[in-house]
Amino acid sequence: MSHHIVEFKDVFFRYPDGTEALREIHFRIVHGESVGVVGANGAGKSTLLQHMNGYLMPTSGTVTIGDVVLTKKTRREIRKKVGVVFQNPDDQLFMPTVFDDVAFGPLNLGLDEASVRERVHQALSVVRSLDLRDKPPHHLSAGQKSAVAIASVMAMEPDILAMDEPAANLDPRSRRSLITLLKTFKHSKIIASHDLDLILDVCGRCIVMRDGRVVADGPSAEILSDRSLLEENDLELPLSLQRQVMA
């Protein structure tokens, strides 16, 4: 087995209306790595994530997950390996109760009832939300929703977690507990976010995107402290670093 768990090779993507959303994307992620993807609105972060499990297919180039090249045929296989957590938990939690939602993935994997229950229990206890299991999602707070959204993906036991703005709409305390939670995961992670402090905290590596291209790729501590690089790309220093600079 290759130790490159995610590989994008010369990936281009054009939307049907002609917008070039990804150009010449090239990068590899190895086992256990946590990678942040940052960039201004419209830089192509979400489009990139949507290639991770084949919701979008590259116009040209290849995406490889583990040993499997993403094609229409392998899409289903790949979706078992890559768990995608969406920006808006209301889109992610589409089932009428927390239990049904977390069970949705395992049931689609064809597991028997006992294993499904076991997985649901496991996933909910990881995010400390077992007591929410019979609630409908619209009775949950934003923080609870995001925890359950993560559980619903974890229940599929993916190798890789791909997350789009996991901390959007969270209050400071929920955001903090999310960060703590993410740090405990041993999965390879790829996190797209505007929350540069979260990236700095959780991800060892950081990719900067602009106009569909990767413009920088390196250790988060280096990239996220490079004020001129960030400002060129319509970003700014993480707050924690701004404070250090001032002090």
């Binding site: 949507q50 078992k80 589409f94 069970a103 949705f104 993935g105 049931l107 599929m156």
Partner: peptide
């Protein structure tokens, strides 16, 4: 638009046309 996003979320978790429940 929301229906599209939900459909994507369902696909991401292995949706094959049936909505299974225990």
């Amino acid at each position: 638009d929301r229906a599209d996003r939900i459909y994507y979320a369902m696909l991401s978790r292995g949706f094959q046309g049936d909505v299974p429940t225990l």
